[in-house]
Every structure is written in structure tokens, then in C-alpha cells.
């Protein structure tokens, strides 16, 4: 019983940190995407203004 207890305790903590890390990864990827979009739009505006 104690081995099962410890195994599931490990699963619980692992799941918790996987969820938090998953959210961090989503944040990082979203951040990269919107930074790319921002620089693309900035260069588009500069191009249009210079014409």
C-alpha cells in the first residue's frame, strides 16, 4: 500500500508541475509569435510610410 501511495504521490506532483510547465511553454510560444507579428507590422507600416 505504501509503495502505491508514494507512486501516486509522485504522479500527483509530476502532473502539477507538468501543467505549470505546459502553461509556461504556451506563454513562451505565444510571446515569440506576437513579437514576430509586431516586428512584421512595424516594418509594413515603415514601408507604407516611406512610399
Amino acid at each position: 500500500m505504501d509503495v502505491i501511495n508514494q507512486t501516486y504521490l509522485f504522479y500527483g506532483y509530476t502532473a502539477a508541475w507538468i501543467i505549470v510547465l505546459g502553461f509556461v511553454l504556451i506563454l513562451v510560444r505565444r510571446g515569440q509569435r506576437i513579437d514576430r507579428e509586431l516586428s512584421r507590422l512595424k516594418s509594413l507600416v515603415e514601408d507604407k510610410e516611406s512610399k
Partner: peptide
């Protein structure tokens, strides 16, 4: 909240 639900579910299983 998801952490809470998942850890609670694992605890409940035991």
C-alpha cells in the same frame, strides 16, 4: 485550478 482538480483526482483514486 487544473492543478487542484488533477491532484485531487489522483488523491481520490487512492
Amino acid at each position: 485550478t487544473l492543478v487542484n482538480l488533477v491532484t485531487g483526482s489522483i488523491w481520490g483514486h487512492i
